[in-house]
Design a protein around this nucleic acid. Structure first.
Lengths: 227, 227
DNA sequence: CGTACCGTTGAGGTGAGTCAAAGTAAGTGG
DNA sequence: CCACTTACTTTGACTCACCTCAACGGTACG
């Protein structure tokens, strides 16, 4: 959010308004930041830790949309939709999260067009729903969907090794992975076993090692290399 | 869009700016309003007709997101994301569509906070992606998904009969329906046959008659009546 | 050192995808 | 107004990825 203020070239007094309104809180693993169906009262910004955003659909199935981490915003969709939260945000690890209540945000958006544009851009660029759609593609086998998930998460959760490989430290349980892929933990386990045997990707609990990234890209674009 | 100007309480001179910038064009059935991967240059507003918004994924599968009709906006996501269009908008029927280029829109958003808020609200409330997710639920049978589609489309495409039923005139082919449900035309045909035989919903080509709406709700919420 | 959750493995069943082909509607041009 | 092309729709037979149910090993934590 501080990034937002900077990029919007807010005046010092305006930035201060935001700073003063800010409330920081820490959450333990499993704690809920906001619940689906609660009324939105402000926007959250992650300082540290990892958060899973998930939705419970009309049939009671849990669908995870997005993993949020450092410096990302939470809860902006319902904030601007002026509606209840459509999803629950839950801490995957210990987290520190800032909360900005509605009034000062509204004030700044009204006064500073660039600040408004930042939010317009954020809303428009939200990768959550499109990624969810990709990861739950009806014609894409679980194996490929799992690979796509890793490719999406890699920028935030993987470090490159000197020999061109990647090491992930995933904040997700098998069940969480399943709820992101629209599948079941059992299926995730089976695919992981298969991948381990082939050596393409090696899972040790939540530590994931990829020796050859190119193979993943290749497999994810198998049917059609474009787009 | 005129609705936007009114609700934002734009001054007359400002509304005029918008009016003067407007360009109206008509499209024949099948014509494309904008293509996926084209650069966004403005926002469209439907005056009449029906438009299908669809996306081609990395595997070449066509996914329809949304049917747009009178007074709805098109292309705002990529406009504010300052990116290429992520979907194609294609006329399902003859259409009249207004186009508003970027400069005057940017100008008005900068000058009039309420106008900006309208777009923030529109982006946040966009039912496209969430509906797409619901209609492609991995554990929901095609039959239920088709019913959900009808329930979503009913407000815009159905008229109530005197005996509490509904008559739809769908602008969608079986293939379009399939691409909205994440299934295949063959499966849609099979389910329609089944529904016709049971008399729950009767399809005659694109004319759909529902005698008892309550049954649909019941079936759509079968596993869990909440939410 | 039990209770609870997470992860793995096996056996079995099925919804819906694929392929193929025939039937139907819609548009085009002579 | 009728042949002809083209696109849409339906039906059938076959197949399979993955869901479900069930049981068990592992690890964490009070």
């Amino acid at each position: 959010m501080r990034e937002f203020a900077r990029t919007s070239s807010l005046e010092a007094s305006e930035s201060q308004l935001l700073e003063r309104a800010r409330m920081t809180r820490s959450y333990r693993r499993g704690e809920v930041i906001f619940h689906q169906d609660e009324t939105s009262t402000g926007i959250y910004c992650v300082q540290s830790g990892h958060i899973l955003i998930w939705h419970k659909d009309i049939f009671g199935h849990k669908t995870a949309f997005r993993v949020a981490s450092s410096s990302e915003l939470l809860g902006y969709r319902s904030f601007f939709g002026e509606d209840v939260h459509t999803a629950t945000a839950q801490a995957l690890t210990v987290c520190h999260i800032c909360y900005y209540p509605r009034p000062p945000l509204k004030n700044l958006i009204d006064r500073c067009p660039n600040f408004a544009w930042q939010f317009l851009r954020t809303l428009a660029r939200d990768r959550g729903p499109p990624d969810a759609l990709l990861l739950r593609g009806r014609y894409t086998p679980v194996r490929i969907r799992l690979i796509l998930l890793l490719l999406i998460l890699k920028d935030r959760y993987a470090k490159s090794t000197r020999d061109g490989g990647l090491i992930f430290q995933l904040p997700l349980s098998r069940g969480d992975i399943a709820s992101m892929l629209g599948t079941r933990p059992e299926s995730v386990a089976r695919i992981i076993k298969e991948l381990n045997q082939q050596g393409t990707i090696v899972f040790h609990g939540r530590k994931v090692t990829v020796t050859n990234l190119a193979i993943l890209y290749e497999e994810a674009n198998l049917e059609n290399g474009l787009d």
